[in-house]
Design a protein around this nucleic acid. Structure first.
Lengths: 92, 92, 92, 92
DNA sequence: AACGTTGAAATAGTTC
DNA sequence: GAACTATTTCAACGTT
């Protein structure tokens, strides 16, 4: 009773199979650890690139844009252009 | 650039209502200015506190912690809710 | 009473002026509330713009880019271009 | 600094070493692929748990809460440290 | 004054 | 499509 999630009975709360629950939680936490490791690796690569003289912000932009296909990329650029023009139009 | 022939006065550039767009942009920019001012104020208070001898890092921790405590309380309510609803959904 | 006399007691732990501390904290929290209100306002404007048919993502880009001066903006665009070219260069 | 990204072999475009750049980009993209795979795995586990009758929202809460608890512990250590150091800095 | 660290804010994706 | 959560990006801060 001491260390469950704050609700009364432990191993079978409304039919919860505690061991099964725990198993899922652990699997998830294991995967999240791996994910954290990968994030650290990625960070490291960016850091190394920066150390070589590259601009990290731009690198991120490049990576992000490469995820899109050409059509998307073009559409984005177009839209931005249209908006900026529209925004400046009345000044004249 | 290319097809500005018929536009003349204002509103429609590439199908976008430029005046409306600009209105939104300006409202946002106005609010962001206010926000920037507030951020500056906050910074100033921290600086003053520091000048009085307080450790800014601690101050930030305290503020953050108080915010978190409030959030925690809210989340607890959520938890109760969600547990209750879940009890029905759970398998035997 | 002197500074280091009563460590372990409350209102002057190691010389901390509790009331002064509290005052700073409250000022900060007050400002943070205002900030939160502004953030909500900004969000609302974006929502309204979206309801009128504008693309929020692009709107944010426009706002962000307007914060920079023309020179910065150009440099950014240039850099991105250079990187993307460099990245594709070896394919030939 | 003065040493830029190793021009001299082949693909210097605008002063950027394209091959080196591409190497970084590819390393990052490789890692991001792995990350995406992990995300998919995690999603799958949640889906499986859901299929077994668990409420995904709760599961996420539990996982998050456990992560926060760990973070809390770390922060407490920090706090102690920082308070100790601050005691010296504080005014009378 | 560059660097990494950390916290806040924006964005994207998911679920209902 | 609206709300919520997770992820990513951005900016501040102390450190060296």
């Amino acid at each position: 009773m001491s260390d469950d999630a704050g609700i009364g009975h432990n191993s079978a709360l409304g039919g919860i199979a505690g061991d099964r629950l725990r198993s899922f939680i652990e699997r998830i936490e294991r995967l999240e650890e791996e994910k954290a490791a990968l994030l650290a690796d990625i960070k490291e690569v960016y850091a190394e690139a920066k150390g070589t003289g590259f601009d990290v912000k731009i690198l991120r932009m490049v990576v992000r844009r490469r995820k899109m296909d050409a059509a998307e990329r073009d559409e984005l650029d177009d839209l931005l252009d249209v908006y900026e023009r529209a925004c400046n139009a009345l000044l004249a």
